[in-house]
Write a protein that binds this DNA or RNA. Structure first.
Lengths: 152, 152
DNA sequence: GAAATGCCGACAGAATCGGTCGTATACTGA
DNA sequence: TCAGTATACGACCGATTCTGTCGGCATTTC
């Protein structure tokens, strides 16, 4: 399928929302959840995850909430996905801990690992700021573009 | 997460195997399954799927089996994944049939849709032939490389 | 001290995925 | 013609993962 989980979507949406409201000191999980119609408790856990990974700063107590730990330009979509869904690999048998058992099967995986890197590169090149800026599809014809080379 | 299903992996492996054995007229599902230790019946269904999508030709009866419907260069990884896993979208709320119901939420999705296109482009640029050639990591330093531009 | 908020673990329902089984159909070759 | 091999297809089940909820606790502000 190759798709993000809803959690990752929610996380990106929440960060975008925070990036769009820089004037406020902090926004509570409920604020963001209400803004998008996301289950509040679920979003809360997602925000906590991102806090743990250093993407957000949290503040308990009344008028508490979350704020971006860094400038929106310094947070990439890759980091968000990594924080929420964990490390991803395009191949099922991730060549990490426990490689593929099937005898010589994973010859496929070596080229696909490079695809994986390419995708990661694309996601790393996208910042929360980029997401927030594209509110209106009008300014789509901007010049900024990342170039990604895939070497087979 | 962002990973392929095992079925897609199996499908790619099977096509690679077929591409590596061009001399044989046809290989049965069992042949391929045995070669890689894949459950035979599962692989059979995958091969049938790819046949239905025009990637393979099938031949029933004794000495039957499957053969590539086109040259290995003309079959992209994208087509394989599409045939097996169906159309994929990186975003949960695919902007196809039933768009996101959440009020204004899917502002995120528009930039991610472009990421999606980029990934699709990468996968389209990879042929079964490419997979088959990379049997040995020795000839990795080949010159052929696809260039993918992501315009934010 | 009370209210609001974040923090955390456990858990349940739903969806998806991986894999199996059974049966029907098609082709080959003796 | 008949047996054997192979594809074709649908139903099903167990396991895993994902989504979302609940309950309790900690922290800060007022």
């Amino acid at each position: 399928m190759l798709k993000l989980t809803k959690k990752a979507d929610y996380g990106l949406m929440a960060l975008k929302y925070l990036a769009e409201h820089p004037e406020t000191v902090a926004l509570s999980a409920k604020d963001v959840a209400d803004a998008y119609g996301i289950p509040a408790q679920l979003l809360a856990k997602i925000l906590q995850l991102m806090t743990k990974h250093g993407l957000l700063r949290s503040h308990a107590g009344m008028n508490g909430g979350y704020s971006l730990a860094r400038d929106a330009r310094q947070i990439s979509a890759y980091e968000v996905i990594l924080a929420i869904d964990g490390p991803f690999f395009i191949t099922s048998c991730t060549k990490g801990t426990k490689s593929c058992e099937l005898t010589p099967s994973c010859t496929i995986k070596e080229p696909l690992a490079r695809v994986n890197d390419t995708i990661a590169g694309v996601l790393k090149s996208i910042s929360i700021q980029d997401l927030a800026e594209h509110e209106q599809p009008a300014n789509r014809a901007r010049e900024g573009h990342g170039l990604v080379a895939l070497t087979l």
